[in-house]
Design a protein around this nucleic acid. Structure first.
Lengths: 216, 216
DNA sequence: AACTGTGAAAACTTTCACAGCC
DNA sequence: GGCTGTGAAAGTTTTCACAGTT
């Protein structure tokens, strides 16, 4: 595999292409063109070709990209040719909701353990996943062979938990706490901040109102 | 206000600056420098100055940016100098969790109504918010003066609900369904896809393993 | 004829470096 | 001396346009 480094936006788009290839109407067809795939993802055909060409030549001139082959190629590039074992740390509102969120399982992310500081939750089972105490974090993560963690603890606790996760070799953290984490060179980190996304919307709405004059 | 158009990444950073200005240690101090603010947000000082200069001159040469003034300026730019009335459509796992998620209220987003298709949920009250049936969507949104919607319905229903929201004048939609929405020129749309974020992590992890040779 | 792969051009974003001000 | 505001430079991403392949 010709693995060059792809920018974050390229990776996002690759994930989008893969999703379209996995479901109808692309799935089941033999070939798909860059313009079809682009239209389905809201991206130009040239962008699709450039993105894919970063990793090699997947297409056939004249016919397009063979769907199955491209799907398999993207899965290998993105590391999605296998399942991933995931733990949820912090089984409150958001963490608890994700435990029962089918879409994760469907897309290859197996939730195998949960953790919470609240004694009332420890030992309970939520959607088939056992909730452990924070004291058992390192041992359970190791014995369950967890690679990725969804971090959904309260903001003040996030940094400390993140460094414990870094110390025990977790490869990636998806952080829902609205704080900036930086536990060094170990795990990759991505942040999801719902309020921040809403703020992006309010900017757009406010800017539009200003443009339209007064209150649109 | 000198309202030029800012790119999406600029807006994200502006939201980050504002968050730092609202909480200690910046809050309470008289001035903050671009390098301090940048360090707190993981951004260079030059980037901070460029971002802010897009909207005017907030700083004082020699001393930095007056915290209160800059905070007020950013709030006006981002449309965060007032509260926003938000509804949650789809009170399942994710939608239900967001109803009880304090961070939204704390950052000025007032959850004033919820909607669900499940008759068992209609009429119930979750975290102080009444759940309405989908039939009442337009009337309740209008009477509750809702401007933004968090859309958390199952993927097959998302597109249809989004066009109803567009038709009744909703200004912004935060979509949690893993599908691409395009309800035309009405509302601004942003997407949050938890599995997609995890996929971004698996790419980074897989790429690192490849670089390190075999399995890191 | 249809469509990819890719250099070159254009557009955009970030960093640099320094004049200007407090 | 310290720090902003900003043009110019460097770097990055996207689009264009077309040669090359089936």
């Amino acid at each position: 595999m010709t693995a060059r480094r792809a920018s974050e936006s390229t990776v996002r788009r690759l994930c989008g292409y893969l999703r379209r290839l996995r479901e109808p109407p692309a799935a089941g067809r033999a070939y798909v063109s860059s313009s079809e795939l682009g239209a389905a993802c809201g991206v130009t055909a040239a962008q699709v070709r450039k993105d894919l060409s970063l990793f090699g030549s997947f297409g056939r001139r004249g016919s397009g990209y063979p769907v199955e082959e491209l799907r398999a190629g993207l899965e290998a590039i993105l590391g999605l040719d296998r399942g991933w074992r995931v733990a949820v740390v912090g089984a409150g509102k958001i963490g608890g909701a994700l435990l029962g969120y089918d879409d994760l399982e469907r897309r290859g992310f197996h939730l195998v353990a949960a953790f919470d500081a609240d004694p009332a939750k420890i030992g309970t089972v939520r959607h088939g996943v056992r909730v452990h105490g924070m004291a058992d974090l390192e041992t359970v993560l190791a014995s369950a062979d967890v690679e990725l963690v969804i971090l959904a603890v309260p903001p003040p606790a996030a940094a400390a938990v993140a460094s414990r996760l870094a110390a025990c070799g977790i490869r990636g953290i998806l952080n829902f706490a609205p704080v900036r984490l930086d536990p060094g060179p170990g795990p990759d980190i991505r942040n999801v901040d719902v309020a921040l996304e809403l703020e992006g919307l309010t900017y757009a709405v406010a800017a539009r109102s200003r443009r339209d004059g007064g209150r649109g």
